[in-house]
Amino acid sequence: MYCPGCGKEIPEGYSGPNCPSCGASFVQRQAIETGPAGIPWEDRSRLGFLNALLATLRLCLSDPTRFFSDLPKRENLGSAIQYLLLLTWLGALGGILWSWVLKPFQLAFLKSLGMNAPEQSWAGGMEGLFTVVVAVMIPILVLITTFIWTGIVHVFLWILGGAKEGYEATLRVYAYSRGSTALFEWIPVCGGLVAFIWSLILQIIGLSRVHEIGGGKAALAVLLPLALCCVIIAAIVLAFLGAIMALLGISASA
């Protein structure tokens, strides 16, 4: 048996409540291992797959403070990753569908703004094939971006003095935040933006609960990396606003 805190081997026959090397509590570890009642997804063998999924979604979106307070900090990382991959894949399928349906309108929006969309030299069939490949590869892409993003956030959290728990805790918060909001991508036009902003809010709440730090520090850790590329988001929002205004202008003059 190994200590959850320092990783050192616990001498055989030792029965104390704390690690003899670092003093970490085993009682708390046992409580974590039994699984808190608040994360239904991690108890899906008992609750059933669909019930556990829906209950987790409901709890994470409606009461995130309680949800993340109950979140185990180290155990069941695989469960959290499965939740993330399943829901982001389902959500991304919605995003792909809407981008196909709305593509002519998006191009018209860009043209109305005086922006030239990049010319595609691919044939229609190739583009369809590429979309299918992307749809199949989504879980891999999500996994890659998840590790990169959570790595960056955890480094910022550490620089700000807020990384009270390990990297796994940050990863778990992201997995549940991003997974729970992914299905919003099925909302046409603004679904992706809604999912993105809601996920950021959940990440801030989650990090503050799991690392037991203030909301300001958690917000800084999430928003500072984004601040460097916030121009991208601002540009997207401005493009949307401009497109809507252009459309209104067209309808007013018509």
Binding site: P118, S121, W122, L228, C229, V231
Partner: peptide
Amino acid sequence: GAWLLTPLRCPF
């Protein structure tokens, strides 16, 4: 560049 779905330009 013409093959890419989005241009590789930094918005910042």
